[in-house]
Amino acid sequence: MNLPAHGRSVLVSGASRGLGRAVARAFAANGDRVAVHYGSRAEEARETLASLDGTGHALVCGDLADPAQAARVVAEAAEALGGADSPDSPIDVLVNNAAVNLPHPPATTPYEEWVELWQRHVSVNLLGTAYLSRLAAGRMIAAGTPGRIVNIGSRGAFRGEPDHPAYGATKAAVHALGQSLAVALAPHGIAVASVAPGFFSTERVAPRLTGPEAESIRAQSPFGRVATPEEIAAAVLWLASPEAEWASGTVLDLNGASYLRT
C-alpha cells in the first residue's frame, strides 16, 4: 500500500503558534486533516485551528513529558481524524515539533535551576518525541499502512548553544533518534527524517529581531536575513510526501548557509 499524497491524518505537536502553526497550515493546504497539539496555549491553538484550510481538523491537548498524556494525545488525534471505528487507526504523518528552549548559561545558572531545566528539556524535547514516535509508529504498523515521521531538530545541535546547552544537546539526540528509527521502521514502510533549522522568525523571537542584536542575527546568513516559518514548513511537507521515502534517515540543514557541516 502506498502513502497517499493528500487526505492523510497528520499530528503536529506544539502547533499553537510559530513553526508548528506554519506546519499545520501547510498540511491543511495540501488537503490533509490535521490534529493541532498544544500543551498550555489553548487560545493560540484555537487560532491555529481556525486558520486551517479544509475540514476535519482537531485540537488535542497534553503534556508530552508525561507518557500517559502522550498516549492520550495520539489516541485522541487518531480518533478525531477519522479513526473512531478502530482503536488501531493510524496517524499517517507525525511531526515532532513540540520543544522547550529556556536559557541556562552554565557559568551563571544556579545548580538547582540547572538540574530542573535539564530535566525539563530532556523530558519534552527528547522523551516526548520518543513517546509520540513509538505510539504513532505502532499504529502505522498495526494498520499495515506506510507512514512518515518528521522531527524538528536544530542547527544548534551542530554549532552549539552556549546559553541553551540542554536545547542543543536534546536536539542532537532527536537527530540521532530519528536516524535509529529510520533504520528500524523502514521494513514497515515508515520513513523518518529530521530538519535542522537555523534562526527563523516567530512570535517568540520577534523582540530579538527588532532589538540591538537584530543585525548580527541576520548577518549569520550570507543572505542577510532569517528564515520564515513557511520555508521550514515547506521542507517538512516534502519530507512527509510519498516522493521523499528515499530521504529517510536524513538530517536536512535549513539555515541559509549560516552553518556548513563537513
Rank of each mutant, 00 (worst) to 15 (best):
138 G>D: 03
109 T>G: 12
161 E>C: 13
61 C>F: 00
187 P>D: 09
67 P>E: 07
58 A>S: 12
179 Q>G: 03
13 S>H: 02
242 P>M: 11
120 R>T: 15
260 L>P: 09
104 H>G: 12
167 Y>H: 09
56 G>T: 04
160 G>W: 01
135 L>Q: 02
53 D>A: 14
170 T>N: 04
192 V>Y: 02
257 A>V: 10
161 E>V: 00
203 E>N: 04
231 E>G: 09
237 L>N: 01
117 L>K: 04
213 E>D: 15
99 A>W: 02
212 P>Q: 11
81 L>S: 11
138 G>N: 03
210 T>Q: 14
148 R>E: 10
98 A>T: 04
230 E>P: 13
191 A>F: 01
225 R>Q: 06
204 R>D: 09
73 V>K: 07
95 V>R: 02
15 A>L: 05
208 R>Y: 15
221 S>G: 12
133 S>N: 04
174 V>Y: 05
17 R>W: 05
206 A>W: 12
238 W>I: 10
156 G>M: 11
44 E>F: 09
64 L>A: 05
92 D>Q: 01
189 G>Q: 03
170 T>Y: 01
196 A>E: 00
169 A>M: 14
42 A>P: 02
104 H>Q: 15
152 I>D: 05
76 E>T: 06
103 P>T: 11
74 V>W: 02
60 V>H: 01
192 V>H: 01
229 P>D: 07
227 A>C: 12
74 V>F: 08
262 T>R: 10
112 E>S: 13
14 G>P: 08
35 A>W: 01
54 G>I: 05
163 D>G: 03
5 A>D: 12
26 A>N: 00
7 G>A: 13
125 N>Y: 00
235 A>D: 03
119 Q>V: 10
199 F>S: 15
175 H>L: 10
164 H>M: 13
207 P>N: 09
258 S>I: 13
25 R>G: 12
162 P>W: 01
84 A>R: 04
223 F>I: 11
67 P>Y: 01
164 H>V: 13
221 S>Q: 13
28 A>N: 03
106 P>Y: 05
197 P>L: 10
7 G>T: 06
38 Y>H: 10
169 A>F: 09
157 A>C: 11
186 A>C: 00
250 T>P: 06
